[in-house]
């Protein structure tokens, strides 16, 4: 190494040095909580399951099994459809709530935020479970309808289908959509709305041309969050879905919890991870992921 090159190298190192030092906890975190588990999962997906347990190996049987049967692919597609629907419904529910919250004045705001949070103090399973005594055959809705005389037989289609799963998912995850949207709306400078009004924009035009574009970062991060949470669930479909409302998560969970086929379970999980990542990346391409995360125009 010539002297000049070496000093240039040293300069580069010095320039990047403090950055690395600062980033090192993040790097450690990433390795421990993300790279290692994923690496293990990917490795295990090539292992072999025997009646004696899962053995290290390098075989493609697990993947072959997934694509040999249209059942898994169809299940994955319907899971994506449910997760996307849950995301869209959450967005439609959350946006007006976030908008109203950001407009609330003074003491009402913390009170309302608290109301949103209270259900989240109980476990996800409990919050899913509450739908059973509401939607069930002897549940509150049926009791009420019978009492009203609107129906004379309890309705059976309220529970154990895809609709019930969607309802459960939206209820459980919608806060993850509401909060990021609320935060971006709250940051929005009210003078921008006044400026829009001043330039001739009616309230709806100001909404479409100023509020919506400036809240896109919140919408994007909320959507990614809800989609990721919803696509991987297995408790909600298990409790509310019935046979027709099963999701990919249930199939994966079954490999680990009952079938004891960790290798196949890992392969299913890897396939799902790849598919989910491509969905998010292509959705990001569509709206400009960079922009959504940075909130600016870099």
């Amino acid at each position: 190494m010539s002297l000049a090159v070496r000093s240039a190298f040293r300069q580069r190192l010095a320039a990047s040095g403090p950055g690395w030092a600062l980033a090192s906890p993040a790097v450690v975190w990433l390795i421990v909580f993300s790279v290692l588990p994923i690496g293990l999962m990917v490795a295990m997906s090539f292992w072999k399951s025997t009646i004696y347990g899962t053995r290290p190996d390098f075989i493609f049987d697990n993947y072959r099994r997934i694509f040999a049967n249209s059942l898994y692919v169809n299940q994955l597609l319907s899971t994506l459809r449910i997760a996307v629907s849950a995301t869209i419904i959450s967005l439609l529910v959350s946006y007006p709530i976030a908008l109203m919250l950001s407009r609330l004045k003074g003491a009402f705001r913390p009170g309302f935020l608290l109301l949103l949070f209270i259900p989240f103090w109980s476990s996800y399973v409990v919050r899913t479970f509450v739908w059973l005594p509401i939607l069930g055959r002897n549940g509150a809705i049926n009791q009420f309808l019978l009492w009203l005389g609107v129906v004379d037989q309890p309705l059976d289609f309220l529970l154990y289908n895809e609709g019930a799963v969607l309802l459960g998912l939206v209820y459980v995850f919608t806060l993850f959509m509401t909060l990021p949207i609320y935060v971006t709306l709250d940051k929005l400078d009210p003078a921008l709305l006044e400026a829009a009004n001043d330039l001739g924009a009616r309230p709806l035009q100001a909404f479409a041309r100023v509020i919506v574009p400036l809240s896109l970062p919140g919408v994007m991060s909320g959507s990614i969050m809800v989609f990721l949470l919803a696509v991987g669930v297995y408790v909600t479909p298990q409790l509310l879905g019935g046979p027709s409302g099963l999701m990919f998560g249930n199939i994966i969970a079954a490999q680990f919890l009952s079938d004891n086929n960790w290798a196949f379970g890992s392969a299913l999980a890897v396939v799902m991870m790849v598919v989910v990542l491509s969905v998010i990346l292509s959705a990001g391409r569509l709206v400009g992921l960079q922009q959504a995360f940075s909130g600016g125009h870099g």
Partner: peptide, 10 residues
């Protein structure tokens, strides 16, 4: 109106 903080659309 020209606002004190200008309020250009970012």
């Amino acid at each position: 109106m020209i606002f004190q903080q200008l309020a250009l659309f970012p």
